[in-house]
Each structure stands twice: as structure tokens, then as C-alpha cells.
Amino acid sequence: MRDLQSIIMKEMHVKPMIDPQKEFEEIKGFLKSYVKAHSFVKSLVLGISGGQDSTLLGKIAQLTVDELNNEENGQYEFIAVRLPYGEQFDEQDTQDALDFINPSKRITVNIKPAVTASVKSLNEAGIELTDFQKGNEKARERMKVQYSVAAANSGIVLGTDHSAENITGFFTKFGDGSCDIAPLFGLNKRQGKAILKYLGGPDHLINKVPTADLEEDKPALPDEVALGVTYDAIDNFLEGKKISEHDQEVIQQHFVRNAHKREMPYNRFTWPK
């Protein structure tokens, strides 16, 4: 089991400890480098949920855009996209996140009509989705909207996937797991929290209980309940620390079972023979 932990740690690129300021500068530098290397990019697009991850990346994206505009006298912008499914239970948190980020532009798209229409069309075709599967429908609709916003604004879509999420496959394939670039990869949950604290994020968002909030039968279900393991245990695992055998087994099972989510689509030339 220890050997698998070493393999996973190498793949996830998490450092045993970080300097939040240095890590922030590295992520910002990566974003700037990518934008400069792709002349078509004039905007960065990200869905803002009111959670730690999107608040962190949104703030970094806006600071990156500000710096690029100062250096190049450019017209870059960060577009923060609100994607509620009807009324969001933690809407105030989302507004607090937006106020903290202070994005170049705010857009709100209610995905409920589109998801309802999609589910209705599937029902008419004889396809009945479970509540869990409908949750994936919501995640994919949100990503579709972000790509539409990016297409209309010469932009790219940012993804909030980090290593503590990636290791467990706790994302929807071709939903929130899709993006053009994933700047937070290589961080675990507590490291992201430390960077957000360094940037002056609101305490109630830094310490907010993480939830995907996709299932209507289980509203605001905490990630840690859904995963069956705490983020502290996942973070310790990624930092090479010893954790309980039970937690290690749960984490490694998630990693192996959800390997397909971390792979690009195969073709007949890339499939291992």
C-alpha cells in the first residue's frame, strides 16, 4: 500500500509544505505565461460557486489580469460566471466571493431551465435519470455555459481541480472536470486554504464546509460525507504522512476506481496493447 501512496504522490505533485506567497506567484506566473503564449486569449472565464476553490482561483485570475493589463496596456478581463440552479441556498456566500474577487465582469446564467429541458427530452426518449445522474447533468450544463461565455469573449475556461479532488475523482467527467487549464493542480485542500488566507479571503469562505450540492435528495451534502474520508486525511496522504489504514484504503480505492476520469479519450493508436 505504501508503494501505491508513493506513486500517487508523484502523480499528484503535492509538496510536503508550501510558502503561500511563493505558490501564489508560481500559479499567477503560469497563468500569465499561458495567456502570452496564446494570442487569441483575451479573457479568463470561471464559474464562481461561493466555495473555497473557485474563490481562490477567481482572485488569482483577477490579479493576473490586472498585472497583464498594467504590463502590456492590454484589454484582458476576468469573467466571473454565476451558474445557479434556480435559487442557491448559499447565494450570500457567492456574492461575498464576488465582492472579494472584484472581477472585470460578472455574468449570471440560471441553468435550471436548460437542465429541466434536457431531462424532459431524455424522459421522452425513455431515459430516466437518477437524482445523482441529474446532478451530473447540472455540472455539465454549467461547463457548457462557461465554454459558450469563453467563445463569445475570446477566452479560455479555468478549472478548479486540485490534487485533493483529483485523487478521489470527486468531479463530473466532462462537467466541472473539464477546462482549458487547471492552475490549482498540485495543491491539496489545506494548501489552497493557506493561499486564500494569504490573499485576504473572507474567513467564512476559507473555513466553509466543502459541498458539491448537486443532488436534490441530499442538499448541501458535505464532500467528506460523500467521500467517506476527511480532507485532512487526504491532505496528509498527499504530503506523505502516515494515516490510518482505513483512510488509506478508502483514498486508494477512490484513486483506482476513478482512474478513467484522469485519462484523455483513447484512440486505437494510444490504447495500450
Rank of each mutant, 00 (worst) to 15 (best):
A97P: 00
A97G: 07
Q95F: 10
D93Q: 11
K105Q: 12
N166F: 04
D161Y: 02
N69A: 12
G126Q: 09
I111T: 11
K134Q: 14
V81G: 04
E165D: 10
P103N: 13
R106T: 14
I167Y: 01
D161V: 13
E128G: 01
I111A: 06
E124N: 11
D66P: 01
E77Q: 15
T116K: 14
A152V: 00
E128Q: 08
F100S: 13
N166A: 15
F132I: 15
R82L: 10
D90Q: 08
E77Y: 02
S121R: 10
Q92M: 13
N136D: 07
L63Q: 08
V145Q: 05
I79S: 06
A164V: 07
A80I: 07
N153H: 14
G58Q: 07
N136I: 11
P103L: 10
F89E: 14
K112Q: 15
D99S: 15
H162A: 06
D93V: 03
V157C: 14
E87Y: 04
D90A: 06
A164N: 03
V81M: 06
T130Q: 05
Q92V: 14
P103M: 12
T116H: 11
L57S: 06
Q75Y: 07
E67I: 05
Q62N: 11
G169H: 03
K120T: 10
E165H: 05
E128T: 13
N123C: 01
R142S: 01
T64H: 07
R140W: 01
Y85T: 10
A117C: 04
D93K: 12
M143W: 00
R142T: 09
G155M: 03
A117E: 11
G126F: 08
L63Y: 03
E67M: 06
I79T: 08
V115N: 08
H162L: 09
N136T: 08
V145L: 07
P84K: 08
K112N: 05
N136W: 06
T64E: 05
T168K: 00
L68N: 08
A150T: 02
L122H: 03
D161T: 15
R142I: 04
S104N: 10
K59M: 09
D93N: 15
A139M: 05
G58S: 09
D131F: 03
R142K: 13
Q92I: 13
Q62F: 03
A97T: 07
K59W: 09
R106I: 15
K144C: 08
E165R: 02
K105F: 00
D161N: 12
Q146K: 09
Q92Y: 10
N123E: 15
I156F: 04
G169R: 06
V65K: 01
Q146E: 08
E124H: 02
A80D: 07
E71D: 12
E124G: 00
N136L: 10
N153F: 06
G169P: 04
V119H: 01
A150Q: 00
K112Y: 05
Y147T: 09
T108Q: 14
I156Y: 00
E72Y: 15
G159E: 02
Q75A: 11
Q92C: 02
E72W: 12
E137Y: 06
E141P: 00
D161W: 02
V157A: 12
E71P: 02
T130E: 03
S121P: 01
D96I: 14
Q146H: 02
S148E: 08
Q62T: 00
A139I: 01
L57T: 09
L57C: 09
A150N: 00
